[in-house]
Design a protein around this nucleic acid. Structure first.
Length: 190
DNA sequence: TACAAGATTGTCT
DNA sequence: GACAATCTTGTAG
């Protein structure tokens, strides 16, 4: 007799299915892989921030759904890409249940693959992925990647090497003016 | 219709 | 440490 195989659940499903703070902390140490243009680049995620939709004055989704943030209101496990300051692209992982618009901003990582390609895209050899706009640029992520499925799309999340013996530091979020008191930024340091 | 602010970054002083 | 680049969104008139 056959049964549905649930003994090996999708680890991404588990990661993005629950609380936004747990998802944010849990994303540290995962591998973010891009195959834009048929060439592979990858980083290990080391810095993220949580944004909690309608409960969070600092979230793009605080005032409800718009054309820009529609992806956040969709199912978890997808990529929300937005334009920052009219210049840069930034990436979020949609988490939680559909409709709640919870998301985790990917702010930085450690380059692991395709470093030469990242250098080419960034036009410099240092500070390749130490900021949300830089991370998107290094991986070749643009507005057209808004909404891609992180299990099967050009950009994917894979269980990574983890953060080793580094410590997770919790701080206030960067660059916002509202809800600064929430310690929703998670960084792997050490 | 106009305008200010924004989940940023690179350059210049 | 200060500031320009650049455009979408929200709010005011």
């Amino acid at each position: 007799m056959r049964r549905l195989d649930i003994s090996d659940p999708d680890p991404l499903e588990e990661l993005v299915g629950g609380d936004v703070l747990q998802s944010a902390a849990g994303l540290l140490g995962w591998t973010l892989e891009s195959r834009v243009g048929g060439r592979r680049t990858a980083v290990t995620i080391t810095e993220v921030e949580a944004y909690a939709g309608s409960e969070d004055p600092a979230s793009h989704a605080y005032r409800g759904e718009t054309a820009r943030n529609a992806t956040m209101f969709g199912p978890p496990g997808h990529l929300y890409v937005y334009r920052s300051y009219g210049i840069h692209w930034c990436m979020n992982v949609v988490v939680g249940e559909s409709g709640v618009a919870h998301a985790v901003l990917l702010r930085g990582g450690d380059p692991t693959d395709g470093i030469d390609l990242m250098i080419g895209r960034r036009g410099r050899e240092t500070n390749l992925v130490d900021g949300p706009g830089k991370l998107a640029q290094a991986l070749g992520v643009v507005g057209g990647h808004d909404g891609v499925d992180l299990r099967s799309g050009e950009v994917r999340l894979l269980p990574g090497p983890g953060i080793g013996d580094r410590i997770v530091r919790r701080t206030g979020r960067i660059g916002i003016s509202r809800a600064k008191d929430r310690l929703w930024r998670f960084v792997a340091v050490g």
